[in-house]
Design a protein around this nucleic acid. Structure first.
Lengths: 132, 132
DNA sequence: GTAGTAGCTCAAGTTAACTTGAAGTCAAGG
DNA sequence: CCTTGACTTCAAGTTAACTTGAGCTACTAC
């Protein structure tokens, strides 16, 4: 009943390849991993971390940004402030992105309702919807 | 008052580089362009097309998918059906993506409210929010 | 006529986020 | 003892979406 997981087991659980996990470690998204006779051994908690990484990626964060998310900014007088403004900025980006997706969804709804074979067949009307 | 635009002018208006426009043409997202003494001349309408391309890209469509969007599937008995199911599938993907973005937004809201220096400082609570 | 600016093509380079391959290690099972 | 399978490192390859560079053309201005 040891709660130690091999890299393969973690990969299986999270539906990742081991190489991706090693890559995240090399990018310092994961803390340096404990080893047993050379092999990485993980605690279950690494799965939570990997889940956050996945979520952040799907939300459009780059590896570098996720590193910031986890490791924060260098400590210093204004560290908290910079952290806050990073989050605020990302929040803003995400909000904008959600709106863009809504726009595209509307366009797709339109396309699905009319039964044109393609976008050009719909002509100016679809474009108008897409552009505003 | 000619409504003919050079590639540079289109690029300037749409905030793109000329190379991107040539690339889209080579990928058949734009119809083969009229030439005058070797140079591409565009009508204003190309800007609409480029706007749709940008929107679709931001919504996560690949170049290949956008080509499908514009050019449709090969004509044939089931063309309309395949088109419909392509749009339906993409619609579904987009809806899912919007939900993911919402999840990340919630996480960021949480992070912004608590004033931790980083995600790990927030610990299990933030992760819990991120993972469900 | 010549300098400058913008365009042309085609091949090669760029970046992110991984993946793949080669060459080697380690513990367990037969 | 020897094979098997999962692991290790490190370098190089992959894909998408462009960009950049080289070498050339064509109009405009002086």
């Amino acid at each position: 009943m040891s709660d130690e997981l091999s890299i393969g087991e973690v990969a299986r659980r999270m539906d990742l390849k081991p190489s991706a996990i090693r890559f995240y470690e090399s990018e310092r998204l994961l803390d340096p991993t404990a080893r047993r006779s050379g092999r990485r051994v993980y605690e279950e908690s690494v799965c939570d971390r990997l889940a956050v990484i996945r979520l952040a990626q799907r939300a459009g964060f780059s590896i570098a940004e996720i590193r910031t998310l986890f490791r924060g900014f260098p400590r210093g007088a204004t560290a908290a402030t910079r952290w806050q403004s990073f989050v605020a900025e990302k929040r803003c980006e995400l909000t904008k992105k959600v709106e863009e997706l809504r726009g595209m969804l509307e366009l797709l709804d339109f396309l699905q309702d009319c039964s044109c074979p393609d976008l050009d067949a719909c002509g100016a009307e679809a474009r108008k919807r897409a552009c505003c």
